Amino acid sequence: MESRTQGPVVHITFGRPEKLHAMDGAGWTGLAESVRRASADPGVRAVVLHGSDRAFCAGNDIGEFLRLSTAREARDYFLGLVVPAMEAIVRCEVPVISAVRAGAVGGGAEIVLVSDLAVAGTSATFRLPEARIGVWPTVFAAVAPYTLAHKPAGLLALTTVEADSGTALRCGLVHEVVGDDLVDDAAHRLALTIAEGSRDAIRRTKRFTTARLRTEGMAAVRAALAELCDETLRGPDAAEGVRAFREKRRPGFASSASAD
């Protein structure tokens, strides 16, 4: 996780580019700490999150799923590491902007969802593939009712199809689409525009616009992740989904047999 300050804006770039910025425990912890530091700095007016030309963020590293052998380990990971990172973005004292130049997958798309604003390049794509590996997009399912309309949220979360930047714009997942080479500059200009306002006014505005998300929404996230850890990850579909992912084949879910 790399942070750099450019005037009143802190730019945070996800690590592990060789893994398409897939997040492990250290990644989630680094994101939470970086956002909290920026939030506490009185000179900061906005935060911009970046990936790279190859990916914005590929979500959770599948290797993390493989090591979660008990509900306790799953809870420690998701509730102890993922939730604090998402909550740091939601509770950040200044607006957080996602600059999406390429794919935002799974947890990466969820980072975009909980950001205050998002700029996407024309090549950016968004996908929630969790159901294909026997789990479900818990943060997205819990938060979407507070940030997106019901039908667009269902389209993304239930179908697992990849959405292009135009679809993301229509859904409200991003607010602006620009050329791929203009994404970072557009996000920075947006942050500078925000920075022209009073920090106190910005802080209070964000607190009120995210009030339901910070309370009801994040409570829903914790409930969804607890259900994922205690029930879904212990079931046969999750085991089959991860095996199929590693073996690069189509999964054969027992719970889907009656629908075939």
Rank of each mutant, 00 (worst) to 15 (best):
L158E: 15
P129K: 11
V94A: 06
A187P: 04
P84S: 10
A157W: 04
A88S: 14
L156T: 01
P137I: 02
L169T: 05
I111A: 09
G108C: 09
V177Y: 09
E162A: 15
D181R: 14
V135N: 05
H175F: 03
D181C: 03
A163Q: 08
D180G: 08
F126E: 06
T167C: 12
K151L: 13
R127S: 09
I133D: 01
V100P: 07
A168E: 04
S165F: 09
A102H: 09
R189Q: 08
A157S: 15
V112M: 07
R91T: 07
L182P: 01
C92Y: 05
V83F: 04
D185K: 13
R170E: 14
R91V: 00
A124I: 08
T122C: 01
V100A: 08
F140Q: 04
C92R: 01
G108Q: 11
V94P: 04
T138A: 15
I97L: 06
V177H: 10
V178Q: 10
I89G: 03
D184Q: 11
I133V: 15
I133L: 13
E110G: 09
E93S: 15
E162M: 14
A149H: 08
E176G: 01
T138P: 00
G103Y: 09
T167M: 14
V90C: 08
E110W: 13
A187R: 05
A109Q: 12
D164G: 14
E162R: 15
L190Q: 02
D116Q: 02
A141I: 12
R91W: 08
A168R: 03
T167V: 15
R170G: 12
H150M: 07
D181A: 14
R189G: 00
P129S: 11
Y146L: 07
V105L: 01
V94S: 10
L155A: 11
R170L: 13
L158Q: 12
E176W: 02
C171L: 12
A149Y: 04
T147K: 15
L156K: 02
G121C: 12
L173D: 03
E93F: 02
G154A: 15
P145W: 00
C92H: 02
A99V: 09
G154P: 01
R170A: 15
A157C: 07
V82Q: 13
T159F: 02
L117D: 02
G121W: 07
G107E: 06
L169E: 07
A168W: 07
A104K: 10
V94N: 09
V105M: 00
G106V: 00
M86F: 13
G107N: 06
P137K: 03
A144K: 12
V143D: 01
A186V: 03
A141L: 15
A118V: 12
W136G: 05
T160M: 04
L156M: 14
T147V: 14
A163K: 08
V178P: 11
L81N: 11
V83D: 07
F140C: 02
V178N: 13
V114I: 03
